[in-house]
């Protein structure tokens, strides 16, 4: 299990993480969401033992990570770049991971490679961006580590490949009980793959919950009132967004379906339609509340 408690990290005078607390249970697919510069990659680097903790605590299976070989051998971290491997062939890349991970499975690598059929002896510099990503991801999965951390895992992958890679990762979770943390801007992929997610903004956690719970806690209501309402008319619920367009009012609100419906119906709506939100929409509305909406443009 991964536990972060009140983690604070600053680079010079810039606060990168400001009291981050979250828990990732074993065997989960965990998504790290957030605006650019929110601290997602920093968290992954802290979890991989690259960065040293300044304040708070980070434990994996109850132990510190930094300089801890016992824990680090259970972690495989893939960052969002592929440039460091461009002079490698896939064969060399495989050998690189095999050299450093005692759990590396040649058999698994062969199996994964047979699906993607990437050239083994060509340099990665000749690969497309997506192919490079595939190559690195199959190596990471073949390491068979307990923890796999992927920064922008689906970057550059075409839709078919995204599905294939996702399935590979799901297999890894089933076969090895792997815990996967991935950061991504592609919320659809996170929504489809992860069961838990954390939203970061400005170094702080906005929420960290199971996705089902996240999806169920924010709803869009399409309704119509005799007079256009404002946020203040619904003190019982937290309104993230309200928009009156002619006689139709769209409300994005936090709460259970029952709570929201009860609050809306107090104002005698002509009709009430409850529409589920996508993760993309949730992200946008949550960010909007935090002022990350580009309205100034």
């Amino acid at each position: 299990m991964i536990e972060l408690k009140d983690v604070k990290l600053s680079f010079d005078e810039n606060v990168i993480l400001d009291g981050v607390t979250m828990t990732v249970p074993d065997g989960r697919a965990f998504g790290l969401l957030g605006s650019n510069g929110a601290g997602k990659s920093t968290i992954l680097r802290l979890l991989s033992g690259i960065y040293q903790l300044q304040e708070g605590s980070i434990k994996i299976d109850g132990e510190d990570i930094y300089d801890n070989v016992k824990i680090k051998e259970q972690i495989c971290f893939i960052n969002d770049e592929t440039i460091q491997f461009t002079n490698y062939t896939l064969k060399q890349l495989k050998n690189y991971y095999k050299r450093f991970y005692r759990t590396f499975s040649e058999e698994k690598f062969v199996k994964l490679h047979s699906v993607l059929n990437l050239p083994m002896n060509k340099k990665l510099s000749t690969f497309s961006k997506g192919m490079k990503r595939q190559a690195i991801v199959i190596c990471a999965i073949a390491c068979c580590t307990k923890y796999i951390f992927l920064d922008e895992a689906f970057d550059g992958l075409d839709p078919t490949m995204r599905i294939i890679v996702k399935n590979m990762m799901i297999d890894a979770m089933i076969d090895n009980g792997a815990t996967i943390i991935l950061s991504s801007h592609n919320l659809k992929e996170v929504q489809e793959f992860c069961d838990t997610a954390a939203l970061l903004h400005g170094g702080k956690i906005i929420f960290c919950r199971e996705l089902d719970s996240v999806m169920g806690s924010i709803r869009k209501v399409q309704t119509s009132f005799p007079t256009a309402p404002s946020k203040e008319d619904f003190p019982e619920i937290e309104i993230l967004h309200i928009e009156n367009s002619g006689s139709v009012t769209n409300i994005i609100a936090k709460g259970t379906e029952e709570e929201i419906r009860a609050s809306v119906e107090k104002h005698n709506p002509r009709f009430v339609d409850m529409i589920p939100l996508t993760l993309d929409e949730i992200f946008i509305y949550e960010m909007e509340v935090l002022g990350y909406d580009g309205k100034d443009l």
């Binding site: 680097r45 991989s48 033992g49 690259i50 300089d67 070989v69 680090k72 051998e73 972690i75 495989c76 971290f77 960052n79 770049e81 440039i83 460091q84 450093f100 991970y101």
Partner: peptide, 16 residues
């Protein structure tokens, strides 16, 4: 002095 290489090397299971 190369960030991408640092990610690879520093995350390896080896002490400083």
């Amino acid at each position: 002095y190369t960030k991408t290489k640092a990610d690879n090397i520093l995350s390896l299971p080896i002490t400083g």
